[in-house]
Design a protein around this nucleic acid. Structure first.
Lengths: 335, 335
DNA sequence: CTGAAAGCGCTTACAG
DNA sequence: CTGAAAGCGCTTACAG
């Protein structure tokens, strides 16, 4: 491969191969051509080290090959220890890799960054946008939907705008966890809930409430924000206010780890005195003491599915307005 | 703002404002123009909702405004609970936001993805590349340096290639931690080290060795891979093989958390029986029981500095081949 | 300061 | 299947 002073263009390759630019373009884009010209072009390409210029291609095709993932930078969750976003990105990457698309990460922390993202979408700097855990009230969601760029979210929107989404059965998962506790004979079941302005917080709480309601049992709730320390604090409050509880359903594994640490410090035995069940099944759940019973959600699968849906939407296909992936109760020692 | 059927172009704006395309371009790019034409153009822009086409601009300026961050997807660290990458990204984003550049995330897991990244760099799909914790032997590093695209790494390369980097004083930080243990009267100090093929693992281990060597004390080492479970396992081995140790310097907070869990399970008191010091000072360090003494490294600062250096390199400026940021021993209860 | 014009590097009907 | 030509939407010397 010869390195010239400047990058070779289609023109250079055409000259070398003795064909027209159009023919080179067709070979590059794998369109029909005679074996001879294909061979000549391919030889020229590798001799010159030709790589197509993305900008030029984008200018005519109106496709950038870039897919944005918008994350709420300011959220305590993104940059907490929670593995949710890491796993989500992993799933998304797998799918985009296969489609030869490039992931672009955009953090929607400040007002300015939100405007930049909105701007990027309007200018079609990217072909489509994935929204992850933006609170439903975030103005960005509505703005993107309005701009008509293909969008997929990882949860249903809270506000009036409709946005296609891929989510898990938060309600059913929470309900299954609580029903398991009831079946195990637990009589006073509390819950450490997630933020009341996030779907994951709302739906899991509702699952807890519905399960207890059907059993005619009383609600005992403490609110957290999906961080470990909020779980630890919530557990302390529960212990102080309702010392007779014998089980806790915690809306995330990280909060459950915090709760377990509080219980351990207070000398409360798990699960003998109080059973604990988390939600997520991140790696941490296998490493707590005792290992954590939890509701597994297929985070990587959400990522793959979101990316797949978005790719189809960009392709002009009709996509389902909502996909709900199943959860699964994983029994370990804590509850 | 009027929404036409298709996006407005410079041409449309020029017509509406009654000036030439060149004048519109100059106003958009904040070049000198008379107040009157500026006003007319700005009015037309907002009426039409004009947003410049990135591809067209890139085609002529040869700048994309995109900056890549390449992460080793396969590494256990990226998608572990370790907050290192999250914080690094946060720092990078702050800096890029200010410069109005867009971050593009590229995961270098598979051979194919590495080739795609190399390809992207050659094709100048991005203006520059940041490398984070790619093992020095990774062929990608050399390939990028060869392609002459501006590159900055978060650690010095292990192989023969030189790459500008921003790192922390791993050696000095480790040394300070161990010297603190010695000064506190600990007589048999072990270390749980990081991977021997990563700079952070190598340098922190050397800092431990040098501090012990000067004090004439014997080395007691167990190797981990920066994950929590590897820290727990290494601690178990140390306890079994050298039960007389009274302190451990652990090369990362996450491994130190694993070690603390092992000690707690084994009924070993911290710091009374064994003192523990970690490295990183991520949020977790404040939440362990007891709270962790650790070596703080300014991860967000590394990100900002990397991005800053890269931006300067892209700008054609000469940048320093190496920047080393200081670490700081944070005293809490564990050691 | 402004406009006419060239050119960035591709793709894609349109003929042949 | 192939080539000549137009065009994607900008920026930027060059005159004036």
């Amino acid at each position: 491969m010869v390195q010239g002073h400047r990058r070779p263009t289609l023109e250079t390759v055409a000259e070398r191969a003795g064909v027209s630019r159009a023919t080179v373009s067709r070979v590059v884009n794998e369109q029909p051509s005679t074996p001879e010209s294909r061979r000549a072009v391919e030889a020229a390409i590798s001799e010159l080290g030709y790589v197509p210029n993305l900008a030029a291609r984008t200018l005519v095709t109106q496709r950038t090959g870039l897919i944005a993932l918008v994350l709420p930078e300011s959220s305590t969750r993104v940059f907490s220890e929670d593995q949710f976003f890491s796993q989500l990105i992993q799933g998304i990457s797998q799918e985009l890799d296969e489609a030869d698309r490039q992931l672009v990460l955009m953090l929607a922390g400040s007002v300015e960054s939100r405007q930049r993202i909105e701007h990027s979408a309007q200018a079609r700097h990217v072909d489509g946008v994935m929204l992850a855990s933006l609170h439903g009230t975030n103005p960005l969601t509505a703005a993107l939907v309005r701009s008509k760029i293909p969008v997929v979210s990882n949860e249903r929107a809270l506000g009036p705008v409709e946005v296609p989404h891929v989510d898990v059965d938060n309600h059913g998962g929470a309900r299954a966890a609580v029903e398991h506790l009831i079946a195990a004979g637990r009589g006073r079941i509390a819950s450490i809930t997630g933020p009341p302005d996030m779907i994951a917080g709302i739906d899991r709480r509702q699952g807890y409430r519905d399960a207890l309601g059907e059993a005619g049992m009383a609600l005992v709730e403490a609110t957290g924000d999906f961080t470990r320390s909020s779980g630890a604090d919530a557990m302390s409050r529960l212990l102080a206010e309702t010392p007779d509880i014998d089980a806790v359903f915690v809306a995330s594994d990280l909060m459950a780890d915090g709760a377990l640490r509080t219980l351990q410090r207070e000398g409360v035995r798990v699960p003998d005195d109080i059973a604990v069940i988390g939600f997520d099944d991140i790696e941490l759940a296998r490493q707590t003491d005792p290992p954590m019973t939890t509701v597994r959600q297929p985070i990587t699968g959400i990522g793959r599915s979101m990316a797949g849906q978005l790719l189809r939407a960009i392709d002009g296909q009709q996509i389902e307005p909502a996909i709900t992936l199943p959860t699964e109760l994983v029994l370990r020692a804590s509850g």
